[in-house]
Design a protein around this nucleic acid. Structure first.
Lengths: 192, 192
DNA sequence: CGCGACGTTGATTTGCCTCAACGATTGTGG
DNA sequence: CCACAATCGTTGAGGCAAATCAACGTCGCG
């Protein structure tokens, strides 16, 4: 199961047996049942999670009580509250499980220790953070330049797995529209 | 002038004289006049730029010819097309100077060489990429959860320097609204 | 001086939201 | 394993934030 994590790193470069042990030694497994929280708004985030199975989301609850989903994380993805974990301030986000999930947890403390013991891992996180940055920039620009129907089409094309396994109202929340409006968009699309 | 760059790094840790020389040796100065391009849509981005003076922007031009600004970069900020530079594919963004500007250029090639010669610099870029990620996540969530008038207020509070020195129509394009609508918002705000 | 870019203002339109009502599906305690 | 509640997706009527289009004054600059 944890092989998924090692394989993910080895997409970028190979690790010696020692480096694998060091990396796995500083992480630990955690299971989360559907609806269980990994991080609650107001806490200081202490860890990042690598998803081995299942699905998590991070989201912001606005002053009117509406949820806005920042990220879904399925197998092979990392999830955390980047703002809280880097500045060690109270989180504005919640992170919870959409399905029963298995995670590999890396605390910030262990992550920083890992960087000292194994500089390759600093390279690994530099690379995946760059990728994450590129993706979210693309998403922001899509949100600014495309109507909702096109954003939905792009999402189903780019991440069909997510659209399949996540309830429609959460997809709406990720796209930045209401569930009612997404329902109407889907109705339209069915007639094309 | 390049001291600004060294100081920026030394916000996170001190560099030896040798490390400073290595870092500066792999960068070079460049001047850009107002409206000159650093990167044009369709090219593959070859470098990142650290702004020593002036102001740049990165933006996307949609199919209707409208510009959407992803980022402003004033002194002490980095700017690049993260998608293009990490995947070495054609850029969707343009980057140009809003004012006459002085830059420190770091090509991707030199950046990767720098990481090998000076691992601290890999740490530096890991850290500032994390920060950039946290910021853009906050911006995306603001775009989804707040009305335009509140986003404008937040921007003037968080980055007064940018709002001062950048033409109003570019601020509108950054906020994701039309110049006409921003003008109306400002009119309203003047009466509060 | 004259011209083009910028900001403003008003009238009209539209993409998406709100609210409400209703079946269908899911989950849960007895 | 059923009964009932809760959640989910759908549909429709009406409303609002922001866009569109157009006209106009101002200013910086060649």
């Amino acid at each position: 199961m944890t092989q998924l994590f090692i394989d993910n790193i080895q997409k970028y470069f190979t690790l010696s047996e020692e480096e694998k042990e060091t990396s796995l030694g500083l992480t630990h497994l955690k299971k989360l049942r559907k609806k269980e929280l990994l991080l609650q708004e107001g806490e200081v985030s202490k860890c990042s999670a690598f998803v081995l199975s299942g699905c998590l989301r991070s989201y912001f609850v606005d002053t009117n009580g509406f949820e806005h989903i920042l990220q879904f994380a399925i197998e092979d993805w990392w999830i955390t509250d980047m703002m809280s974990i880097t500045t060690q301030t109270a989180a504005n986000l919640n992170i919870d499980a959409i399905q029963d999930s298995e995670l590999l947890i890396l605390t910030r403390e262990n992550q920083l220790e890992l960087f000292e013991k194994c500089p390759k891992m600093e390279k690994y996180f530099r690379i995946i953070t760059e990728k994450g940055m590129a993706n979210i920039q693309t998403r922001l620009l899509e949100n600014m330049s495309l109507p909702a129907v096109q954003r939905y089409k792009n999402l189903t094309k780019k991440y069909p797995k997510i659209v399949e396994k996540v309830p429609q109202k959460l997809i709406a929340s990720f796209l930045g529209i209401t569930p009612e409006f997404l329902s109407k968009l889907r109705h339209q699309l069915a007639y094309e």
